[in-house]
Design a protein around this nucleic acid. Structure first.
Lengths: 208, 208
DNA sequence: ACATTGTTTAACCATAAGGTCAAAGATAAT
DNA sequence: ATTATCTTTGACCTTATGGTTAAACAATGT
């Protein structure tokens, strides 16, 4: 593979990423991708045989990028509290730089859940689960967090970080009316979300 | 308009709703809709001139259904705490019965934000905002919630309720691994979410 | 210089998809 | 019964779209 090859293939891949991110698998047109990459449509099919294959390539790269961002939670050597602060800071910042990823991924996975199963095959959730529990055993006990509450907690944290991007169109529409800038909101959110979660945890009267 | 008319038109509308909900605007095929309604494709165009018009009709009805569910928060005569519990119970229950709505709406609004602006034109956000503030003035003071924290609070609540449905494909994929049923998770979530939010609020050390 | 291999293009193909039309069936009004 | 109106259909049209092909064009090796 020569240098030129790589350049063309990369240009195609980048153009495809852009179009798919904007229009989704169904809405994307091969012609648009070719145009954006400044090449002939046939050349698309030369590098990536079909639309599906091209999409697959793009989707896997994007999804990998997103999910890998969750990884540090499992190995950073921080207290639970610091981990929560770290997560919201890092994750929201990352999404500020890649705001279209969540909507794209959620939509494509809902449209075709098999895609996600495929991604998950490489990861052993249970192992991570147990690791987390071990890392923060004392803290979980101190905060009175039982084993079966962890899914609720984790999904709450993910929701608070990702949902604003998934519902960006709605949020921006509403914020417009009250003169609030989406990015300012997000900057605030890093701290607010962390504080909010930590406060909820610190209030120990959890069980019924 | 005779009785038969109405039946046909309704059958078309229902079929269209089903297909759009599943495939989205771009993925839906007029032929599929016709088939599902057991009619000729030309008849679709007789009742709803174009795909866009048909989609518009379906979208508006669905979106109205969803957003109207938020209304009770603004007029129910409950304490802030009870309102939070009421909201999570009602809203999650509603979405359990209509699980495809969030992903559909979020996707279509992101794909075409103008749609949402149009929906919002009928609503005066600021008025609701002020009403809420007035209704819960003392509680907001007691909880030390400042004016500019309200967007963060409201979006947090919405996120916790809606996100599991928007990310259903992912959640179910993960839950599968840890033997957790999505609906059980949702049933738990009604209480967990309310408790979580209330606990966060009750912990008064909010400002920096 | 020549063959080989890899890259790019213009022209083309088949089909799927949204949409139209003229005519046949119903229904109701006079 | 006849006309007028509304509903439904099968056949058809046009365009957009994913995909193919044969040939031109490079680059590389011998």
């Amino acid at each position: 593979m020569t240098e030129t090859d790589k350049q063309t293939e990369e240009r195609i891949f980048d153009a495809a990423t852009d179009v798919f991110l904007d229009k989704g698998m169904d809405g994307a047109r091969m012609q648009d991708i070719a145009n954006r990459a400044n090449i002939n449509k046939a050349l698309l099919h030369y590098y990536y045989r079909t639309k599906d294959k091209l999409f697959e390539a793009v989707f896997e790269k994007i999804a990998g990028k997103v999910f890998s961002r969750f990884a540090p939670i499992f190995d950073e050597n921080l207290s639970l509290e610091d981990k929560i602060r770290f997560f919201f800071n890092e994750h929201i910042s990352f999404l500020q730089n890649n705001p279209r990823l969540p909507a794209f991924i959620l939509n494509e996975i809902n449209r075709n859940p098999a895609r996600f199963r495929k991604l998950m095959n490489n990861i052993d959730i249970n192992k991570l689960w147990i690791m987390l529990e071990k890392q923060h055993k004392e803290e979980l006990a101190a905060y009175n967090i039982s084993r079966d509450m962890i899914p609720q907690l984790m999904t709450t944290i993910a929701s608070m970080s990702v949902f604003p991007f998934a519902a960006r169109g709605i949020f921006e529409g509403i914020f417009e009316r009250i003169d609030l800038d989406f990015n300012d909101y997000l900057d605030d959110r890093k701290k607010f979300a962390a504080d909010f979660v930590i406060k909820a945890l610190k209030n120990r009267e959890i069980g019924e």
